[in-house]
Design a protein around this nucleic acid. Structure first.
Lengths: 178, 178
DNA sequence: TCCCTAACGCAACGATCGCTGCAGAACTGG
DNA sequence: CCAGTTCTGCAGCGATCGTTGCGTTAGGGA
């Protein structure tokens, strides 16, 4: 989701970006999503509000950016030797990630601002799932796997209060593979 | 989700409530969720902003109220004689409901404001599912049915751009019942 | 090392938000 | 029909939001 390659990836720009992203995540965990405004984020990040407005423009774009960063590169595709093993390990990792209230708050907020926000949360997951399945010969369709694995997992995380534990998530693999 | 029984269910109060709910749904379809503020809603509803603030207090509570109304009483539990038939018919209805962009916008917005909002969207669905399964002898667990039926359905609706058609939703019943 | 561009801080502005008195209108029950 | 209660409209307020122009600072390339 990084827009091309930033002209200046390192230095102050990177620090500001990290500080703002961190501020958004922190504020989402400790207060209501409605209290999340640009000036508040800027104050928490130790940055001038103008900077936030100029770099991200809208709260929606900022949240999409945070979601994309938060849900990228944090989970590595496992390699256990078997398709079932890979899926089980990966599902446990994803479930553990979703069990974090911070992660959940970011996801809820990103969904609330439009279509792009929701997609930013799962784009990397779909890519990982495709990689696992392709290595396994593409036996189950990626679409079907996403429906039966990611579907229940994210549904529970968002709509029901109960957290989805890793064991239960692993059990979903049996539904898919039989 | 209706707080007890409103002291005055009929008359002007009901008209105002309906107008405000309708305004929220309309505004969510035609503009960004960030543009959804109390004064804007009041203006569209032809009501004074003070009224909206006093009756609902927060945009979050208003959205939760709208979601609860929108996702209650719109789908009737079918009775085809067989558990499979009931589930297939019901799933097709739910999928059709979710295919409406208006419905989707309300759901996204409700999710964005916190935990209660998400639960308000599916509380009635869970009750309906429980009713269907209980009549069928409670063969599959309600939890499992919700995971395998509602999970993929809502996941597709929220995260992926593709709408979930009724036929595909019916196919999920086969995964659950075998 | 020096220059040049991009990014940031600062200050001010108009617009909007959310809230709070008070007065009038509408609905319900007798 | 009338009285009591509840709900709504109105006007105004302080606070905050989002934007803009300009000067300054930090990073990267020759």
């Amino acid at each position: 989701m990084t827009p091309g390659i930033p002209p200046r990836p390192g230095g102050r720009s990177a620090r500001v970006r990290a500080a703002v992203h961190r501020a958004v995540e922190e504020l989402l965990t400790e207060s209501s999503p409605e209290a999340l405004t640009m000036p508040v984020i800027a104050a928490r990040a130790g940055v001038h509000p103008t900077t936030v407005y100029r770099r991200w423009g809208t709260l929606g774009e900022l949240l999409a950016s945070v979601a994309a960063s938060r849900f990228s590169g944090d989970i590595v595709v496992p390699d256990t030797g078997s398709l079932r093993g890979d899926l089980e390990t990966w599902m446990a990792d994803v479930a553990t990630d979703l069990a974090d209230p911070d992660t959940l708050a970011v996801m809820r907020a990103a969904i609330g601002v439009g279509e792009e926000g929701g997609c930013a949360c799962v784009a990397d997951r779909h890519a990982q799932l495709a990689a696992i399945l392709e290595r396994g010969g593409g036996a189950p369709d990626v679409e079907r796997a996403a429906d039966l694995l990611l579907g229940p997992l994210y549904y529970r995380a968002i709509f029901t209060g109960r957290p989805a534990d890793a064991d239960w998530a692993r059990g979903l693999v049996s539904v898919l593979l039989g």
